[in-house]
C-alpha cells in the first residue's frame, strides 16, 4: 500500500509517498514528516518576518546569534559547498536577491549591494554554536539549500518509524527528490529528468536510479522573474551581485543527502562545469549553455561516483 500526503511550503508543493502495510501508521509518519518540512519553512523563510532566518539577518550584523544544532550544521554545509565550488555557491546573496526583487515582486529594481556579499563574512563559532556577520548589511538566502535540508530532516523522521515504512520517496517542487529504500524487486527508484536542447544537442531525457540517495535539478530559469523587460535567473553570481551570466543551462546532482544534491545542483549550474575539488560522492550531469560548449560536449555524460546510474537518451 502507498500513502501520499502533500503540503505547501517554501513557495512550492512538497509531496511524500510512503510504501508499507498499515495505512494508519503510514499516514501518521507522513504527517510527522510534513510537519518537519513546515517547521523548516517557518524557520528558513525570507518571506516571513517572524522566521529564524529573518531574525539572523536582522541581528547577526550586530551580535552573534545562537543557533540550534540542525541550523548550525546547515550553515556549516553551506560553507563547505562554498569552498568546494570555488565560491560559486554562496548563501550570502540575500542583499542581491532582495535588490533584484526576488523577495518582493512589486519592489523596484535597486542597485544590488555587492559589498555585502561574500561567505568570507559568514562567521560560525563552533564553540558557541552561533553565527555572526563580519559586515552589517549582510543577509542570508537559503533558497538554494533549504528544500534539501527540510527533505533530509523529513526523511530522518520517516527512518525513525521503525519498520512501518518499507520504502519512501519525498520531493519538494519536483526539483529535489530524496529516496529511502527500494521498491520491491528493484534496485532503486527510477526518476526521469528532461534535459533541454542546447545548441546542436537535441532535447533529451535522463533516467537515474536512486537508492537511499537524493537528486536535485537546477534550471537556469527555474524560478526567474521579469524586470524591465529582462528575464532574470534566480541564481546569483556572488562576484557581481547579478544573475549569472555564464554557467550551464541545466545541472543535476546526485548525492547521499538532499542538502548536498540541492546545493550542488545550484553550484554546478553557476559554474557550468564540475570543479576539481568535488569528490566522487556527488555525481553530476551538466547541460552546457553556449553553442561552443554544446559542440565540445557532443554527448552528455555524467561524472562522479554514480555516473553509471544515469542513462541519457534523445527525445524523438
Amino acid at each position: 500500500m502507498i500513502v501520499r500526503r502533500a503540503t505547501f511550503a517554501m513557495g512550492t508543493r512538497f509531496e511524500i509517498a510512503l510504501a508499507g502495510e498499515e495505512e494508519r501508521a503510514l499516514g501518521d509518519v507522513a504527517e510527522a514528516a510534513l510537519a518537519e518540512i513546515e517547521e523548516w519553512d517557518r524557520k528558513l523563510s525570507v518571506f516571513c518576518r517572524d522566521s529564524l532566518l529573518a531574525h539572523v539577518n536582522r541581528t547577526a550584523g550586530a551580535r552573534p546569534v545562537r543557533l540550534d544544532e540542525d541550523t548550525f550544521e546547515l550553515l556549516q554545509a553551506c560553507l563547505a559547498v562554498h569552498r568546494a565550488s570555488e565560491g560559486a555557491f554562496d548563501v550570502t546573496v540575500g542583499p542581491a536577491m532582495r535588490a533584484l526583487g526576488f523577495h518582493d515582486a512589486a519592489a523596484p529594481l535597486a542597485p544590488a549591494a555587492a559589498c555585502f556579499i561574500g561567505s568570507d563574512g559568514l562567521l560560525l563559532d563552533e564553540e558557541e554554536r552561533s553565527v555572526r556577520f563580519a559586515r552589517p548589511g549582510m543577509a542570508l538566502d537559503l533558497g538554494a539549500i533549504g528544500k534539501g535540508h527540510a527533505l533530509d530532516l523529513a526523511a530522518s523522521v520517516v527512518r525513525q518509524a521503525n519498520g512501518a515504512v518499507h520504502a519512501a520517496l519525498l520531493h519538494g517542487g519536483t526539483s529535489t527528490v530524496t529516496s529511502i529504500g527500494q521498491p520491491p524487486g528493484r534496485e532503486g527508484f527510477d526518476v526521469a529528468v528532461t534535459l533541454p536542447a542546447a545548441g546542436a544537442l537535441p532535447e533529451r531525457r535522463a533516467r537515474v536510479t536512486l537508492s537511499d540517495e537524493s537528486l536535485s535539478v537546477s534550471g537556469r530559469f527555474g524560478r526567474s522573474i521579469e524586470k524591465d523587460g529582462e528575464r532574470l535567473s534566480h541564481v546569483i553570481d556572488p562576484t557581481t551581485a547579478r544573475p549569472i551570466a555564464g554557467g550551464a543551462l541545466l545541472a543535476a546532482a546526485v548525492a547521499r543527502s538532499a542538502r548536498e544534491s540541492d546545493a550542488w545542483s545550484t553550484a554546478l549550474l553557476a559554474l557550468g562545469r564540475r570543479p576539481q575539488g568535488l569528490g566522487p560522492d556527488v555525481t553530476s550531469l551538466i547541460v552546457p549553455l553556449d553553442q561552443a560548449g554544446a559542440a565540445r560536449a557532443q554527448k552528455l555524460r555524467a561524472a562522479g561516483g554514480r555516473a553509471a546510474a544515469f542513462h541519457c537518451w534523445e527525445c524523438q
Partner: peptide, 11 residues
C-alpha cells in the same frame, strides 16, 4: 547598537 540594521523593529 542595532541602528545599523535596516529596521529597529524585531530586536
Amino acid at each position: 547598537a542595532l541602528a545599523l540594521t535596516p529596521s529597529l523593529a524585531g530586536r
